[in-house]
Design a protein around this nucleic acid. Structure first.
Lengths: 219, 219
DNA sequence: AAAAGTATGTTGGAATTCCAACAAAAAGGA
DNA sequence: TCCTTTTTGTTGGAATTCCAACATACTTTT
C-alpha cells in the first residue's frame, strides 16, 4: 500500500489534506489502479474524459498526433503528477490528445465528476481539493506558455538554446541531464530530428554547449 | 453602473452567483475600474501579479515579446473575459507576458489573493468563485493546446489552414470574419507576415479559400 | 560473442522561410 | 479633397528546414 501512498503524499492534489483522510477520499473518488507497459496508450484521442490520473510510478507523455503522423509532445508527467484533469474541469467530453506511457508505469485513476460536484457525503476535503486543482491547472497553464515561448522561436538553434536555458534555470545549474531522447526532444521542439542533431553538433563545435547523450552543459 | 454590471453577468467568474451578491463581492475583492487607450500596456512583463482583470469593454491581447523583438500573440480576450488569473493562482510573482489594449478598453481589476484565500467575512460565494475559476483556467489550458496544435504545423500554409479550419468550426460556418489583422495573425501563427500574405494569395488563386480583408470562406 | 534492433549523427538536394525593400491599397487627419 | 500614415501584397536572394538515405554507435537478445 506504500507504493500508492508515498507518491500521493507528494501529489499537489492532496496538499494540506491530512494523510488520514486519503483512504476515505480514494473510496469516495472511486479510485482504481492500473499498470501500463512502455508505449501503451493510457488515453486515446477521442475517448471520453471521465477519469483523470495520478502517476504512482514511471512517466507518461501527453502527445498530439496530426493527420500526417507528425508527433508533438505537449508535456511529460512523472511520479506524483496529474494528467487529464483539465479536460474534466473544462467539461470537454472527448480528449483531444493521447497519453502514452513513456516507460512502464502505474496510474491511479480518479473519477473527476465526483471531485467537482460536491459528493453526497459532503466531504470536508472537497473544497481543498478544488483549490489544489486550481493551483495545479494554473501551473500547467504557465508550463504551456513556456513551451510556446520556446517553440515560437524561428530557428532550430534558437529553440534548442531556449530549451536548454530553461532547463538550466530549472536545475539551477549549467550542467543537467534531460529526460527526452533525441527524437522526443525534436517532437517537443517541433523540429526535424536530423536537423536538430546537426544543430546540436554545431553548437558543440562552436563551444557553446557540451553534451554526451542526455547530459548537457551550457558554456 | 450598467456598463459594469452587464459584462459581469456574462462573466464566467460569476456563473451561478446571484446578481444581488455582486456589489458585495466587488467590495470584498477590492475592485477597481481603469480605462486604457489602444496600444497601452495593461500588464508589463516582470510586474507583480496582484490583480487580475475582467474586461468590461474593448479587447486585449496577451503578448510575449522575445529578446529580438519578435512578438508572439498568445491569446486575445474580449468583453466579459478574464486575464491574468493563472499567474495569481499559480503563485507566480512576476508576470512573464505583456497585456496590451488592442482597442480602447475598460478593465475591472480584482485582488486575487482575496479570492483564493477565504476572506475574513467567509463569504458564501468564495467556493463558487473558486470553482468558476477552475473551469475558466481549464478552458484556457485547452485553448493553449489548440494554439500549439496550430503553430506546431511545419509550413505556413498548414498553419493558416489549421487556423481557418478551427475558426470555421468555432463559427459553425464556412464563412466567418477574424479579429486579427494580417500582422497580428502572423504573430499568432508565429510566421513572417509577408510570407503569410503570399501564402494566403496562393490559397486564393488555387481556389481553396476566398477572402476579402478579414472575411474568410473555406471552399 | 554475434546478430538484430534501436538511437544518434551526417550529408546533399529540394522546398520553404526569412528578410528587406518596395508597390499598392486602405484608413485617418488636416 | 489632399496628404500622411498604416496596412496589405509582391518579389528575389540568402538562410534555414525538411526529407531521405545512409553511417556509426549503442542496446538487447539469442
Amino acid at each position: 500500500m506504500d507504493q500508492i501512498f508515498l507518491p500521493l503524499l507528494h501529489c499537489r492534489l492532496f496538499h494540506r489534506i491530512s494523510a488520514d483522510n486519503i483512504p476515505a477520499m480514494l473510496k469516495c473518488l472511486n479510485a482504481k489502479t492500473i499498470s501500463f507497459k512502455k508505449d501503451e496508450f493510457i488515453f486515446r484521442e477521442g475517448q471520453t474524459a471521465r477519469y483523470f490520473g495520478i502517476i504512482l510510478s514511471g512517466s507518461v507523455q501527453i502527445v498530439k498526433e496530426d493527420f500526417y503522423g507528425n508527433r508533438n509532445i505537449l508535456a511529460r508527467m512523472t511520479q506524483s503528477e496529474i494528467f487529464g484533469e483539465s479536460f474534466a474541469c473544462a467539461h470537454v467530453d472527448a480528449v483531444p490528445i493521447n497519453v502514452i506511457a513513456s516507460e512502464d508505469c502505474t496510474v491511479l485513476f480518479l473519477n473527476c465528476l465526483q471531485i467537482t460536484n460536491t459528493c453526497s457525503n459532503n466531504c470536508s476535503f472537497h473544497k481543498q481539493i478544488i483549490y489544489n486543482l486550481l493551483c495545479d491547472i494554473a501551473a500547467k497553464n504557465i508550463a504551456f506558455q513556456q513551451k510556446i515561448e520556446i517553440t515560437s522561436k524561428r530557428t532550430t538553434r534558437e529553440k534548442i538554446m531556449a530549451y536548454l536555458t530553461a532547463q538550466s534555470r530549472l536545475h539551477q545549474s549549467r550542467s543537467f541531464s534531460i529526460t527526452y531522447n533525441r527524437q522526443e526532444l525534436a517532437d517537443y521542439l517541433e523540429v526535424e530530428r536530423s536537423a536538430m542533431s546537426a544543430e546540436i553538433s554545431k553548437l558543440k563545435k562552436e563551444g557553446i554547449i557540451q553534451c554526451t547523450k542526455s547530459n548537457f552543459t551550457i558554456l
